[in-house]
Design a protein around this nucleic acid. Sequence first.
DNA 1: CCTAGTGTGCTAGAATGCTAGGACACGGAG
DNA 2: CTCCGTGTCCTAGCATTCTAGCACACTAGG
Lengths: 127, 127
Amino acid sequence: MTLHLNPELRLPLFEQIERYWIYRIAAGDPAPGERIPSVRDMAQQVLVHPNTIVNAYGCLERSGIILPRRGIGMEVTAEAPRICKEKRESLLGERVRELFSEAEQAGMDRAEVVRLVRDIMNQIGGK
Amino acid sequence: MTLHLNPELRLPLFEQIERYWIYRIAAGDPAPGERIPSVRDMAQQVLVHPNTIVNAYGCLERSGIILPRRGIGMEVTAEAPRICKEKRESLLGERVRELFSEAEQAGMDRAEVVRLVRDIMNQIGGK
DNA sequence: CCTAGTGTGCTAGAATGCTAGGACACGGAG
DNA sequence: CTCCGTGTCCTAGCATTCTAGCACACTAGG
């Protein structure tokens, strides 16, 4: 799983970074007690200003996903996996609901939405 | 079909207004030769600053969907229905592609995405 | 003790989107 | 002709997001 920042996207960079760690922690890769890259390291990896990382990490901290330890780094909390899985459900569900909302405004039937999803899924790749 | 502006959404207000007319014209309601509300009328209907409407209408004009007529109003062009239908396809397709992109980053299989879409569709309403 | 690496805080600027209010030019109706 | 509604343009301010650079406090390791 790689973080592919896209400035053209609607999502602010710091939220893209936040989601990246939510999805990774939900998948179990940085486990509780382990640490995510430091603010400066992450900024250099993603070629973004450190303040943007601070913003993203701040959101993760306020959600109880990471615990800042001065002089050490950002530690994944014990409750992080549960919180991240909940957030993953919520985020993707919201995306789908937005899709239905937009499709409804466009006068598209719900069955048509499902068909459109299948079409594009097949169009994207054989896998 | 009603325009329900949502400032909390990622989409800027002027783009929400632009899409509203794209979808309506694609559906054929304001037919070629007919006019859409004036900048000031639309602003008052939607409770938004006239400049925001100017921005939205400017996009529609640059796409060849409407033709500004000073002292008269904004006229729907002859090619508008075709252009709007194309844009509708493109906009919804992009929405679905973004969904798959986000789901892939979250480590979700494509079949799971289809299942999620069905679940939420059933969850939204019986219709 | 000292250094390096860490999180945190601060001010400042650029770009975007929205609001606010004013001004002007055009065209139909009277 | 005048008047009103129309599109168009202008400056200004505010909030958000990102960039930029600097300073400080804390901790581990030598």
